[in-house]
Write a protein that binds this DNA or RNA. Structure first.
Length: 365
DNA sequence: AAGGCGGGGTT
DNA sequence: AACCCAGCCTT
């Protein structure tokens, strides 16, 4: 299903749309830590990477902590990957953190610490695609670069009555063409953010507030009557079910309680993060023996089951625990002991955090 | 062109 | 319980 009508506005409509959006944005924009005159281009970069497929409310605190820990591109470039992952822990899509780290090293080593100032040059940075390049270029550098994200897709689909899967090839071309046609040359950063802000706060997926919309006179979907008909449905595969067993292994280290963690491989899900020993059912005993250097006795009954839902996987963990006495150096170099009180600051996925919490809760009762 | 990659807010 | 989020990269 593709739209064939032309998606162009008259010059007068274009100007009225820009004006309406910019005026609305000036009044209704949310106060966010990455908005303000004192935010460096590096801050815009960090925020835009964090905001990929992640909502503003989730990013907020992560951004503030990140900027305190890595205040500039040099600080980030000089950090170890594991420190970077520690700051990203819980935010998801961890490849973003790796690529941001690689990008920082590239900027420091090859670009003398200066972020590129155009969308096309920004594309050279790892993790910076069409959207992010347009966002940084327009917001941090004032380039009249267009941008399309999930919010903008919805706004345009309704404004112009574009049906079908918004991620479809033809629809994407349409949206980017509209964005390029409309982007305001005098204040592209505010204009682009006004579109996203409108999508996030007014032109929402389920119950849009059309009465409050600054561009309602131009909205084709509203004129038709049923705004939520646009955009069309996205097709998604159901998540794959995965069963795993985990064992929280505790031991004594310098008179303190420590737990055994294994670093995940640097590709695939949760790449480079730490986790309690985890394996498919039937393989956990072998893994533990390889890590500890001798067979580990496991309780007959698990402490509990833990479900972890991702968009593409439904994971079920059967959780057990074991105590091994003295914490001897693990036989494998991807494993090590860390003090239990250091777990909060470790580079864990949210799933691993839940696993450790379950074991700690069960043991202290 | 399709699939992998996280986690949580909203409704 | 769906739906979707300031997407990008690999295959």
């Amino acid at each position: 299903m593709s739209e064939t009508e032309p998606h162009t506005f008259s010059p007068e409509e274009r100007e009225e749309l820009r004006e309406s959006l910019l005026t609305w944005y000036a009044r209704h924009r949310r106060d966010l830590p990455w908005r303000g005159d004192d935010v460096p281009a590096y801050g815009t970069w960090v925020s835009e990477i964090m905001l990929q497929q992640t909502q503003v409310a989730t990013v907020r605190d992560y951004y503030v902590r990140w900027m305190a820990r890595f205040p500039d591109v040099t600080a980030l470039a000089e950090a170890e990957l594991e420190q970077v992952l520690e700051q990203w822990s819980g935010l998801g899509y961890y490849r973003r953190a790796r690529l941001l780290h690689e990008g920082a090293k590239y900027v420091v080593e090859k670009l003398d610490g200066e972020l590129p100032g155009t969308a096309s040059a920004l594309r050279a940075l790892p993790g910076v695609g069409p959207y992010t390049a347009g966002a940084i270029a327009s917001i941090a550098f004032g380039e009249a670069a267009p941008l399309v994200d999930g919010n903008v897709e919805r706004v345009f689909a309704r404004l112009r009555g574009v049906g079908g899967d918004p991620k479809g090839r033809e629809n994407q071309k349409t949206f980017w063409a509209i964005a390029a046609e409309l982007v305001d040359a005098s204040d592209p950063g505010s204009f682009n953010q006004s579109l996203m802000e409108l999508g996030a706060t007014v032109c929402t997926p389920k119950s849009p507030s059309c009465l409050l919309c600054p561009v309602r006179p131009y909205c084709s979907a509203l004129a038709e009557g049923d705004v939520t008909r646009y955009p069309g449905k996205r097709v998604r595969k159901p998540p794959k079910e995965v069963a795993l067993r985990s064992c929280v292994v505790s031991g004594d280290l310098d008179g303190e309680r420590a737990v055994l963690v294994v670093k995940r491989p640097d590709k695939g899900i949760w790449a480079g993060l730490l986790e309690p020993p985890t394996a498919p059912p039937g393989e956990l005993e072998g893994l533990l023996e390889a890590l500890v250097g001798r067979p580990v006795e496991l309780p007959a009954e698990p402490l509990g089951q833990l479900e972890h839902r991702l968009s593409h996987r439904l994971m079920t963990f059967s959780v057990t625990s074991a105590h091994v006495g003295e914490a001897a150096e693990p036989a494998r170099d991807d494993a090590r002991w860390i003090l239990e009180r250091e777990l909060d600051d470790a580079a864990l996925s949210s799933a691993s955090r839940k696993l450790f919490a379950l074991a700690r809760g069960a043991l202290s009762e």
